[in-house]
Write a protein that binds this DNA or RNA. Sequence first.
DNA 1: GTCTATAGATCGATAGAC
DNA 2: GTCTATCGATCTATAGAC
Lengths: 186, 186
Amino acid sequence: MPRKITERNDVIPILAELFRERGFAGTSLSEITERTGLGKGSLYHFFPNGKEEMGKAVLDDVANWFEYHIFAPLREGEDPYADIDYMFKATTQFFHSGRRICLVGVFALDDTRDRFSSEVQSYFGTWTKALTIALRRTDFGAAQAREIAEDVVAGIQGALVLARSQDDPKIFTRAIKRLKARTRIT
Amino acid sequence: MPRKITERNDVIPILAELFRERGFAGTSLSEITERTGLGKGSLYHFFPNGKEEMGKAVLDDVANWFEYHIFAPLREGEDPYADIDYMFKATTQFFHSGRRICLVGVFALDDTRDRFSSEVQSYFGTWTKALTIALRRTDFGAAQAREIAEDVVAGIQGALVLARSQDDPKIFTRAIKRLKARTRIT
DNA sequence: GTCTATAGATCGATAGAC
DNA sequence: GTCTATCGATCTATAGAC
């Protein structure tokens, strides 16, 4: 028997997709009620602080996903090469090969960032640090590992923006291929 | 004698900074009247189609700046090495070493892109193509020149997002240094 | 828990005096 | 050209019935 649709956790993915499409400021409660099928009463029951709390919940959900699937393995995995490769694979899937944009990236620009600055900062900071640790284990020096990690995380973000601007997912997959090559000692 | 402040062209830079800060959907007309010191009557005199026209005007202004200062030299300059170096220098200045975010990048995400898709597409597309031409002239092969150009344009965007998310302009300047190195044949 | 109804503020846009 | 006043629509959020 399928779980009841009306749980807080079931609403979050819908909110995430909406915020990705419209941005935070551009998403209205009436559109949220439409897409979730929930009245405002229900929404405020789940998120007493309204839109702000929905934004936080969505960022939190994304952070948890990345922490569990990507960051933790990078930090604590046994085979750094395999973990880095998996990072690229899982990231590509998560972003639907460039067709889906990064929610945190959307929140990172304009003044939405100020309302969620700690969440946004933590997402990119944690990613960069976890990748740095994995790269160090593949015998890169400390400085080089940090540079490559920054290059990769920034490169993924930029590729998402560029791919979306040109409506061309191949831009993203090409970027992933380049970035992946840079995580290998030559 | 300083030119009268109330000209359409004088309003555009103010609009640009506002859209950068708040995003398109997040910028209200009341805030625009506040920052420009112009009443709504005057604004609608300059921009009969309202906010939409302001958005187009601002994108147009940015596109013109880049075309004149960066794209045209890349395409038609005499010394491709110097032109590419100048691109990095001018870009760094334009983005205030990473403290200022990219207006077109802000417009490229969420559904704002749909309203300005041709402008957004043209900006990144023209940039990539112009840089590809310059790189070809420095004896890179066609395929490699295209890859590097894509890498650089995406890398700049990503570095802007990352630098802003961490409130750390050094992330941007480090990225520029790396990207610049990649435009040189080794 | 979920709904409808609605408050109160603010939105983009317009009208018309000067 | 620039202003103030104001429109109708839409916004976030709340109230209260069920």
